[in-house]
C-alpha cells in the first residue's frame, strides 16, 4: 500500500468506509510504472544479459517487468544489442506496432552509438537514428543491475507524465518531436 499512498492526495474517512482521492495523473502513472512490460526482443550480446535479468538471480518480475513476446502488448522496447542496417526496418515496424504510450531503452554501447562497431559499414550508429530513445544505458554489455537502474530511471520519467488531452502522450510526443524517419 505504500506505493498507493504516495500517489494519493487525500483519504477521507467516512462512516462505513472511506474515499481515496487522487489525481487521475498520479493514479494512471502509478499503474504504468508498476507494470512496465518489455518486448521479448534481443538483438545481440546484451540480450543474454537481459535474459539473465529475467532469470533467477535478478528476478526482474518483482519490479513488474514481465516480458511480452508480441509488440502489441508491450510498453517498452529494450534495444539489446547491435542494430544492423538490415534490421533497421523491422525495428521501425515493431516500434510502430507497439501501443502508445511506448518507451525505448537503448541498452549497451551498440544501441547508443554503434559501440565497438562504430566504423562498420553495416551497423546503425545508434538506434536513435531510427526510433526515439528514452533512456540510454551504457556498457558493453551492461550488467543486469544496470538494466534495472535504467528501468527505474524510466519509471521516474513515467511519473512525470500527464494525461492531458486524453491520449497519454509523453511530453515529447505532444511537442511533435517523435516523428519517425
Amino acid at each position: 500500500m505504500g506505493i498507493v499512498l504516495d500517489n494519493l492526495s487525500k483519504i477521507e474517512n467516512l462512516p462505513g468506509g472511506g474515499i481515496a482521492l487522487a489525481t487521475s495523473d498520479s493514479l494512471i502513472n502509478w499503474a504504468r510504472t508498476s507494470s512496465v512490460w518489455p518486448l521479448t526482443f534481443g538483438l545481440a550480446c546484451c540480450a543474454i544479459e537481459m535474459m539473465a535479468a529475467y532469470a533467477s538471480r535478478f528476478d526482474f518480475e518483482r519490479m513488474g517487468v514481465f516480458p511480452r513476446p508480441t509488440p502489441r502488448q508491450a510498453d517498452v522496447m529494450f534495444v539489446a544489442g547491435t542494430v544492423a542496417k538490415k534490421m533497421a526496418d523491422p525495428i521501425i515496424r515493431i516500434y510502430k506496432q507497439m501501443p502508445e504510450p511506448k518507451f525505448v531503452i537503448a541498452m549497451g554501447g551498440c544501441a547508443n552509438c554503434g559501440g565497438p562497431f562504430y566504423d562498420s559499414y553495416s551497423v546503425v550508429k545508434g538506434v536513435d537514428k531510427i526510433i526515439p530513445v528514452d533512456v540510454y544505458l551504457p556498457g558493453c554489455p551492461p550488467r543486469p543491475e544496470a538494466l534495472m537502474y535504467a528501468v527505474i530511471k524510466l519509471q521516474e520519467k513515467m511519473k512525470k507524465m500527464t494525461v492531458k488531452g486524453g491520449h497519454g502522450a509523453t511530453p515529447l510526443q505532444a511537442a511533435g518531436s517523435r516523428k519517425l524517419v
Partner: peptide, 15 residues
C-alpha cells in the same frame, strides 16, 4: 563488395 580492399563505404542515413 565490402571485403574487397578498394571498397569505399558511402555513408547513408544510418551512419
Amino acid at each position: 563488395w565490402p571485403l574487397r580492399k578498394d571498397y569505399a563505404h558511402v555513408p547513408d542515413k544510418f551512419d
